[in-house]
Design a protein around this nucleic acid. Structure first.
Lengths: 225, 225
DNA sequence: ACCTGAACACCGTTCAAGT
DNA sequence: ACCTGAACACCGTTCAAGT
């Protein structure tokens, strides 16, 4: 929470830990041990300082994660977006999605209160792209914000559900009796699910985000004409 | 994980804690102290037993939450759904949404791995309604599953983001200088966001789930014709 | 068969005191 | 101004032992 740039009149003990060092150490832990292991205490010992020290540089654990995500976003979002409104919206949403999908730990911070307010410039440019695309299509700015939120919910939901599903796809070898996916369902009341049956996991594993996104964008834009 | 129904040949110490008691105590804690306080240790002391005892009745904390959610679902989903495919899909998705929205703690368990596989009959009937609606509209069963998943992502995302936003809407009285919602944005690169500005929180507070849902359903159904 | 205390291996955060 | 050890107030889960 203190600035690492030394102002002229500054006095007292010089800093040994900088924001950059902290973020670097955090990424090292994530890459080496997995993001579940990124705790304040582990991060402190990675840096060779006491846990209390970190509270001079980040407000709390959540703040650390938001900073990490903003850093990631600034490295990810690059290149210009297409000009046609519909394509601009799809490209921006896809960029946000792909950026988040690459960082499963993002799920932890995505639903943070006031998350949007704490986004950095690069991420906000993607929000701008969606909102401006909707306005250029002919929406009011109020409607454009609603459209952004709808697409944001879809994107966050996909990331969050997927982040907690990736776990194991092994363990269910072709040797075992392919027992029903849904445990003991009443097939008379659930005929469609029964007929889909064991195919469900395979279907659920397919990446249908892009297709769903296009359907959603078209549906939303059709509503405001 | 043991059944509370006593089989004839059973022997040994009689149970003092039942599945029903556990679920009841859990709901009491949620109602009285808030769902954040629902921990294994607190639940045990609410019941007057040791923490280890609970592990004879639930596999782990996650299992407890899934059981709680299924119980809630069985009390919530009632009444018949409309017959026209589009309306049936919308009604089922809305029922799932409203049911989850009433239980903010559901966010904790929603993204559980293999969540769908652990749903009980009442919740599965809502899944069935969406899938059957899509099939009756003319989709293949594969496509119907994709449609369900897309709507599920949107629904989960809305719930999760909303659950972490409800916190405080007070504290920002009309007296204070209505400072910018987005902190220090580059207005030349973000003109639309700049013009929306402080209206964002008010717009974000509006419930646009039903409208977004209809747009999404229409977009998805239009894709498969 | 069911219950238990005690232990294991952790958390995030605060605070008075030190340099 | 920055750093610290120690403490506070918790977690989920396991396990050998008891009834």
């Amino acid at each position: 929470m203190t600035r690492s740039t030394s102002s002229p009149g500054r006095t007292g003990r010089p800093p040994r830990t900088s924001r950059t060092e902290i973020l670097g150490a955090a990424r090292r832990i994530i890459d080496r041990d997995g993001w579940e292991k990124l705790t304040i205490r582990r991060l402190a010992s990675e840096l060779g300082v006491g846990p209390a020290t970190l509270y001079h540089h980040v407000r709390d654990r959540e703040d650390l994660l938001v900073q990490l995500l903003n850093e990631h976003a600034s490295q990810t979002f690059s290149g210009d977006l297409p000009d046609p409104p519909r394509e601009r919206i799809i490209a921006a949403a896809t960029a946000m999605h792909d950026s988040l999908a690459a960082w499963p730990w993002a799920a932890e911070v995505l639903t943070t209160d006031g998350f949007l307010r704490r986004l950095g410039q690069p991420a906000l440019e993607m929000v701008e792209a969606v909102v401006s695309g909707a306005i250029d299509h002919g929406c009011t700015s109020e409607r454009a914000v609603h459209i952004f939120r709808s697409l944001w919910y879809y994107t966050v939901g996909e990331i969050l559900v997927r982040a907690h599903t990736e776990s194991r796809r092994h363990g269910e070898g072709p040797a075992g009796p392919h027992d029903t996916f849904f445990t003991s369902i009443d097939t008379s009341r659930l005929p469609r699910l029964a007929s889909v049956g064991d195919q469900w996991p395979a279907l659920a594993a397919q990446d249908t985000y892009p297709q769903g996104l296009r359907a959603f964008v078209d549906g939303l834009l059709a509503q405001s004409t």
